[in-house]
Nucleic acid binder design. Structure first.
Lengths: 364, 364
DNA sequence: ATCATTCTTGCACACGTGTTCACCCTTTTG
DNA sequence: CAAAAGGGTGAACACGTGTGCAAGAATGAT
């Protein structure tokens, strides 16, 4: 059995489909009794209006597309949660798609959104960025970028103030008396990475601390990469007494490497992260980190999009300030508490592999 | 300027819109030269076919709806990632919506999906469950439930084998010599919770360990709840030597409570979680837990949906086995290593509040 | 009674695409 | 040379909904 349309209802009610359309849309043009009769028949026959057909005539789908590198990334998930909340509050449904950090796939996904005639698009951590300017002449769909990872500014974007925030974080380490401060970046060449690195450099400069290239290593933005990167720092003849990490995931890996090496945080090494994931409060020790208002940034991006949809002219490049959250992974520099040479003698890499690395994981 | 339709292209190419439609759909019915000419004009004018109009005539939107309690939940996010991957591989786009664990909202979202004429729906952790049976007579849209939280079986569903998996987990603790084994559940009345509790009971029974109600407390499935619940267990005159937690989030909170109380995991207390979140490998110590193949379960649910869409008759209630992952949060029961009475004297609750609870978080 | 006004309704078209049917033109076959 | 066959194309309708316009009915005013 086919699904009921307004024509079917019109037949049952002995009226034209126009009248049904008006009655169901609470139009004042239709007689009260007829309207009630029509609505009764509609609910009886389980009628559900077709948003598809409606979109065709209205030229609006009440739909937005969200592109994300991967929804399994906790950072992305929290932002999307904010976008969805704001979208839903205004009657919009959201399409979600993963780009897997692949520019080609990102463009393909956006094109699929275009075919679906979404009213607007939010792209997180875009690898395409300003290239949308070219596409924009063809696609008339407003796009808002969130933490754009492609150099050069673009139309409308929301982003965290990376440089200020990371300078603030490293300044905190300086104030604690640290001088050998490392940085674990993200090797995939994000703009975020270079900006956070700039903040790190700026904080060193203003404290007259000489920049030492060997204290800068790179991970992959995930715990695995942070762990490996921290291991390299620990193998230095003079390891850093504090490390600023590209993000919390990296920091979590670094924590593990430090513990595996038999050292303690923050007694031996201080760690600062970036993002303030909801779990970062529960690491051991709780992580000092830069808070990104993820949920709010998602909502903000959606609000910009909504303004664009009403034809308004919202602020173009919005920078949201980060906020340093002090927890227990940072402390004043220890004074000789940690004897690095003895750690060296213990051959930490080997030791680590023997203890904490051994995860019995019998997979079928 | 309006966006180009096949009629506009038809005008430019001096053909009818029918021919354009055929040419763009690679129909063999159209002359090769004309087809090429049409395709050239189409790309020149930046034509993008309207999925909306297509859906109207095809009665298929190549779209599925996914309802999730909250996408910010890492478990949900990983499942959605699997759904999206499988959906995208078959040309489907996915609508995402949060139900916030609110049954009314869940129904509302599903209705909005119906209006959007999605081809299928996946609902995670549904609070409505079998009630969809009634709606189904009206909505002819296939629905697959994933870890249904409403009692009673329902049409097509994918779920983790809670009872077996949790029995396996608790059996592991028994084999390590533990006898006082606690359970931290989820107070919100999930079916998952009662099933995991059943597995816990079963493992105790088969080991002839008497069930002690005071060793069962409840959290909220999040770290906060796990922390508070673990605090209550620690305040017992005889705290458990091992605790099985409803999920990893709960376990993470429990770990924090134990550390704050000055005890160690697994030396003093063993902890087992459930879910195997990607972060659980990086807790301190790394968490022994039951692996749920989240990504695969998402893909599986989508595969069931795809079969339903082709008119096939897939298996109805699929149970996916969990798998115990051994890491470092469990160990043989210590022999008097831990003197609980001394802990009691230290007034752990106070001490905890003084140390680990103090998170300097100056919010504006 | 006539006209103006208001209320109510239906007709017809539009949105963009797909598809059936019939038609024309060319080529092949008898 | 006529007929059949085949390739290529356009006209027309369908999908479900919204809306401008006109027309009819009812009511009120003069």
């Amino acid at each position: 059995m086919k699904r009921a349309s307004i024509k079917d209802i019109a037949r049952l009610a002995n009226v034209s489909h126009s009248t049904v359309s008006r009655a169901l849309r609470q139009s004042p043009l239709v007689n009260t009794e007829t309207a009630e009769k029509i609505q009764r028949i509609a609910t009886q026959s389980g009628y559900s209006p077709s948003a598809i057909a409606r979109s065709l005539v209205n030229c609006r789908t009440n739909t937005i597309g969200v592109v994300v590198t991967n929804i399994a990334d906790p950072f992305a998930a929290e932002v999307v949660s904010g976008i969805e909340e704001e979208a839903n509050a205004h009657g919009y449904s959201v399409f979600l798609a993963n780009s897997n950090a692949n520019p080609q796939r990102e463009v393909k996904v956006v094109q699929s959104f275009e075919e679906r005639r979404v009213d607007g698009i939010v792209v997180m951590a875009s690898r395409v960025g300003a290239l949308y300017a070219d596409m924009l002449s063809q696609i008339q769909i407003p796009i808002v970028l969130l933490n754009n990872q492609h150099p050069s500014e673009f139309g409308h974007s929301v982003r965290i103030a990376n440089i200020d925030a990371s300078r603030q974080a490293v300044r905190h380490l300086v104030q604690l008396g640290h001088e050998r401060i490392g940085y674990i970046g993200d090797r995939s060449g994000h703009v975020s990475d270079s900006e956070r690195f700039s903040g790190y450099r700026a904080a060193l400069d203003e404290a007259d601390i000489e920049f030492q290239p060997d204290l800068v290593v790179h991970g992959d933005g995930k715990p695995e990469g942070g762990l490996a990167a921290m291991e390299r720092l620990l193998e230095l003849s003079q390891p850093p007494t504090a490390v600023f990490c590209y993000n919390d995931m990296t920091a979590i890996g670094a924590l593990k490497a430090i513990h595996a090496g038999g050292l303690r945080v923050p007694d031996d090494i201080s760690i600062v992260g970036f993002d303030d994931l909801s779990l970062s409060e529960y690491t051991e020790p709780p992580l000092t980190t830069v808070h990104q208002p993820k949920h709010e940034m998602g909502r903000l991006a959606m609000q910009v999009l909504l303004e664009l949809l009403t034809g308004a002219d919202p602020e173009q490049n919005i920078r949201v300030p980060g906020e340093l959250i002090l927890r227990q992974s940072t402390a004043p520099r220890g004074e000789g508490k940690c004897d690095y040479s003895s750690v060296q003698k213990m051959e930490p890499a080997q030791k680590r592999r023997g203890s904490s690395f051994l995860t019995l994981k019998p997979r079928s």
